[in-house]
Simulated scan of single mutants.
Amino acid sequence: MKIIRKVAVKQIVTDQSKAKLRQEYDLKIFKLEQECQQLLFEQKKLEQRTAKKKADISAKFQKEIANRKDHIKWYKYKIEQLDILPIGNEISDGEVEAMIDIEEGMNWDHIMEQRSIVIKDGIITKIT
């Protein structure tokens, strides 16, 4: 029988991986800032079209903009943390699902032990 279980993916921090993560975070910040600008534009356009419920329109748009600004703050914090992260450290990079063969008589505790995949610069270096 086969079962599916989650396996942690860890990444070893290198100069290359730090640069890649920083680039990803900067891109996400840029996209979120663009979304904020677009929302402001849409808000003004909608308010000009309809005279009623300007306060409701404004509140909804401000909520969405505030949500995106919170995400921007989060990514800026992640960049700060990335800058102080030493080279060689392992960081969590999510989880993947793995298919495992099981048979009668196998040790369940051994099967369910925490497993991980370690990656360095896009190359799998260790599977435990």
Rank of each mutant, 00 (worst) to 15 (best):
A98I: 14
E95Q: 15
R5H: 03
I72C: 00
K18S: 08
Q16V: 03
E97L: 10
T125H: 09
E24G: 03
E80H: 09
D93V: 04
D83Q: 08
D109R: 10
E104V: 08
L46K: 15
D15G: 06
K2A: 06
Y75C: 01
K54W: 05
M99K: 07
C36I: 02
M106S: 11
L27M: 03
S17E: 01
K20D: 13
S116C: 06
I117V: 13
T128S: 09
L46C: 12
K60R: 12
I72M: 02
A8C: 03
E95M: 11
R49C: 06
K53H: 09
S116T: 02
A19G: 01
K45R: 14
P86N: 07
I4H: 03
T125F: 11
Y25R: 06
A51T: 10
H71V: 02
I72Q: 00
Q38T: 14
W108N: 03
I127R: 13
K76H: 01
A59F: 05
D101P: 00
V118R: 12
M1G: 02
K78D: 03
A8F: 04
A98N: 07
Q37M: 01
A59S: 03
E103V: 00
Q11L: 13
R22E: 07
A8G: 02
F41Q: 15
I123C: 04
T128I: 11
Q16D: 05
E64H: 09
I29V: 05
I119M: 10
Q16R: 15
T125D: 11
E33W: 00
V9I: 12
F30D: 15
K44V: 04
I119Q: 07
I12R: 09
R22F: 01
E64K: 14
K44F: 01
R22S: 01
K10M: 15
Q114Y: 14
A8T: 02
N89T: 10
D93R: 08
Q34M: 08
Q23R: 05
I102F: 10
E95S: 13
A51I: 06
S92A: 15
A98R: 10
C36P: 03
I124V: 10
E47T: 00
K53D: 11
Q114C: 09
K54S: 09
F61M: 04
I117M: 12
L82V: 01
V7G: 12
Q81S: 13
G105H: 06
V96P: 14
I127Q: 12
